[in-house]
């Protein structure tokens, strides 16, 4: 779906923003050195805008870079990047007014299964390419087939699979570091006082890391898939994320990053929230 027209519009827009002094840097993608991978690029000279690309290799979630960008920046986003930006704005991590958002439809030829938000939900300018803009103010009726299939297995089989997956992990923390929802100054995994989890890669330490990672991004994960793509060991990280996306959707009717006035589900409560965790006979029935 590499559309030269879309690309030239993106480049033109970036050039104009730099020329007019509206922004100091444009965050986008340039051609990479490995087949199928485009690389994040920080362009501050208008002549360099021609190096921007918008292709199948642009799978990384660029919203991550806005967190540490101190200059006035423009960012080129696809659907999931824009949802991460919405999250970061509602979590007061970035200022909307400091950011110029150039939106374009997701250029990935094989987009993530079930993705319903290919076109950005927030932008200053949307590069139109004829992609259908979905009304995203409602909860996407999304099925997580991987979760449903997995739940058919017995508890022992599920546990064996998850243990097998996390035992591949080398704790490089790439999944955490590429994730725009992970922005803690100090991650629990690296805390030394107290040291919550060991520095080993035995199953226990790895599993606790992955379960907590999934829980920490629950209700904020936009399912961009960056974590899984980043993982060098091929750990099936999205399975845990999908499970929690599904739970957050069914328990709190919420999907993250769709609306700028969202209240994140774990920052709030209802008096009559479901309590599926209570054992029979627990609490006031």
């Amino acid at each position: 779906m590499t559309d030269t027209n879309t690309l030239s519009k993106i480049q033109e827009k970036a050039r104009r923003l730099l020329e007019d002094g509206k922004v100091e840097v444009v965050i986008g993608f340039a051609a990479g050195t490995v087949p199928g991978k485009s690389t994040p690029s920080f362009i501050s000279a208008k002549e360099d805008c021609e190096s921007l690309v918008w292709d199948n290799g642009c799978s990384l979630n660029l919203a991550k870079y806005v967190l540490k960008e101190k200059r006035k920046a423009a960012i080129i986003v696809k659907g999931c990047d824009s949802r991460s930006l919405v999250n970061l704005i509602t979590e007061n991590q970035i200022k909307r007014e400091n950011l110029y958002i150039i939106g374009a439809a997701c250029p990935l030829s094989a987009s993530c299964a079930g993705c319903q938000v290919k076109v950005p939900v927030i932008y200053d300018e949307l590069i139109e390419d004829g992609s259908e803009i979905r009304e995203v103010s409602t909860i996407a009726e999304r099925r997580y087939d991987d979760v449903l299939e997995f739940e058919k297995l017995s508890a022992e089989e599920r546990k064996a699979y998850v243990y097998g997956e996390v035992s591949k992990c080398i704790r490089c923390y790439a999944c955490r570091n590429v994730c725009p929802a992970c922005y803690c100054k100090e991650c629990f995994a690296e805390k030394s006082l107290p040291q919550w989890i060991g520095k080993t890669t035995d199953i226990g330490d790895n599993l606790i890391f992955h379960l907590i990672r999934a829980l920490h991004v629950a209700g904020r994960c936009v399912d961009c898939g960056s974590c899984q793509r980043a993982c060098p060991m091929g750990v099936n990280l999205r399975l845990l994320n999908h499970k929690l996306l599904m739970e957050v959707g069914s328990l709190y009717q919420f999907e993250a990053g769709l609306k700028e006035d969202q209240i994140l589900p774990l920052n709030t409560y209802q008096y009559d929230d479901p309590q599926p965790f209570l054992a029979k006979g627990g609490g006031h029935e």
Partner: peptide, 22 residues
């Protein structure tokens, strides 16, 4: 600028040898 400071390059590097003792 683009580096996100994960440990892939060091952990997959055949010559990186820094360690920690805990």
């Amino acid at each position: 600028q683009k580096c996100l400071n994960c440990g892939i390059c060091t952990y997959l590097c055949p010559t990186c040898h820094c360690f920690d003792i805990s």
